[in-house]
């Protein structure tokens, strides 16, 4: 066969599982940033201030049209030239969080636009404040249609965390590379990385679908 060594596999497994925790933390923290910042980017495009809408729109387009790995390098290596020195983790979270915030803002935008105009009119007729209208009336209704897209990007950000290895964040890919260069064996670590990613992505995607149905039920919208 392909010279697969089980003893080596079990030897490196604990190290890779430990790195998986870092991968999950990176994905979780990056996603948390993206979820909140994405909403800010989406709402900023809906204010009456045209210049703000335009600036944010261009920023989102710019982020979406350039590679993530470039953005990671940029934050980490170009930042210090302007006196912004960031630890790999911090730089990585900012880059990946911002990148996915741009994508999520588009998901939110679609969700917000799917809320019927009548809901805005009823809110105005009841004299609800703009903040109350957004957070109690519009966003809860924009959420269910956004969840599928949000779920896709949760899996997406998780699968993109290996890019953080380029600036030395000790996540799964980085650890697998380290094991490879120490032992000159790449088959087992890379295979394990793939298996671990698969073992997390697939159930997550299924859970998101369950969650989506649950949210709809909670909001009385199914």
């Amino acid at each position: 066969m392909f010279d697969w060594r089980w003893d080596f596999t079990f030897e490196i497994l604990p190290r890779l599982l430990l790195a998986t925790v870092n991968t999950l933390m990176a994905a979780g923290a990056g996603y948390a940033i993206a979820v909140v910042l994405g909403l800010v980017l989406a709402l900023a495009q809906r204010t009456p201030y045209r210049a703000l809408t335009y600036a944010v729109r261009e920023l989102v387009e710019f982020i979406r049209s350039t590679p993530l790995v470039l953005q990671i390098f940029f934050v980490f290596y170009v930042g210090p030239q302007f006196g912004i020195r960031l630890a790999p983790w911090t730089a990585g979270m900012i880059a990946i969080g911002l990148h996915y915030a741009a994508y999520l803002s588009e998901v939110y935008r679609g969700g917000l636009e799917s809320v019927p105009k009548g809901q805005w009119e009823a809110s105005l007729a009841l004299n609800l404040s703009p903040a109350r209208t957004y957070f109690r009336i519009i966003i809860p209704q924009a959420l269910p249609p956004s969840l599928a897209g949000m779920g896709n990007y949760l899996v997406g950000i998780f699968k993109d965390t290996p890019m953080l290895s380029v600036i030395g964040v000790a996540e799964l890919m980085h650890t697998a590379n380290a094991i490879g260069s120490e032992s000159y064996r790449f088959l087992e670590p890379y295979t394990l990385v793939g298996v671990i990613f698969l073992a997390i992505s697939l159930p997550t995607a299924a859970l998101i679908r369950v969650f989506e149905a649950w949210v709809r039920r909670q909001l009385g919208m199914s």
């Binding site: 019927p116 009823a122 009841l126 609800l128 109350r132 909001l219 009385g220």
Partner: peptide
């Protein structure tokens, strides 16, 4: 105002719809 298409808030019960304005406005 009452609208042609009612425009009730779908994620709130009937009474929550009625209470939203009195409580929060």
């Amino acid at each position: 105002m009452c609208f042609q298409h009612f425009n009730l808030f779908p994620h709130m019960t009937a009474i929550e719809n009625c209470m939203e304005g009195p409580v929060h406005v």
